[in-house]
Amino acid sequence: MAAAPPSLPLQHLDTLWFQVSGTLCNLRCSHCFISCAPDNHTLELMEAPRIFRYLDDARRMGVKEVYFTGGEPFIHRSFLAILECALRDFPVSVLTNGVLIDEAKADRLRRIADGSRFSLEIRISIDDYEEARNDAIRGKGTFRKALDAYKLLYDRGFLPILTVTEMRDYLTPQGGERDLHGRYVKLLRSVGVDRPRIKVIPIFEMGMLPAPAGQRSVTPEMLRELDPDALQCSSSRIVAHDGVYACPILVGEPEARLADDLEGGLRDCSLYHSSCHTCYVTGMTCKNF
């Protein structure tokens, strides 16, 4: 009989994520770990007043930083207002595919960032350094659009973070790329970015990808030897329209839902999912650093 999965206490709620656009996205990437798409209403858009209430709670509880993700945050009509409000009290990071960032939006983002004493970090995702391979995963034209968005923001004084998954290794493990980081540095330099910032994240086999063969999970023994700080769920939570979840990876998974409100979301989370094993092995964090 398999032992019950171990659970992890929250040390302190430092990082609060918002699934601001639910599972709604303007793209339909073939690997999306929460299967976001234009018509996936599993998690709905979050209403602005609700987010403001959570931000109030977060301030009271001493939260250090706020992240917005989705789906695609920029499809939310009130997103810029939400961003502006969050930046009054918190450093903020936004995860986007960049498609909806045009000149006007980049200008607005610059003004919003300048209005705050805190950092606004923008992360733009692509999945391959070759246009054709990226577009095969993320959709036609997304490579150019993401790079254009990066450049528009860069030219306005942002230092965006290009977020890339290890999709290439996943799809063709034999032909794995040794210097992935270097490839993306080269790509960004080729469009005139001399201070590239890049974050590489591992693949989570869930959502649109088939579950891994042979379930691997975190055992109590593994946890005993681990520094709890190595798992992001020891210091972060995510809120979606229907409540608080353990982490951005398991958002929307019924078993990872902890409570309606932030206070309740402080309880231990269960490391029940095979993705917890990926976290354990890779030490990955969804945060910028």
Binding site: G62, V63, K64, E65, D89, P91, S119
Partner: peptide
């Protein structure tokens, strides 16, 4: 603790 990432309430 950087200036731009340390909120007052923290």
């Amino acid at each position: 603790l950087w200036d731009s990432t340390s909120p007052d309430h923290l």
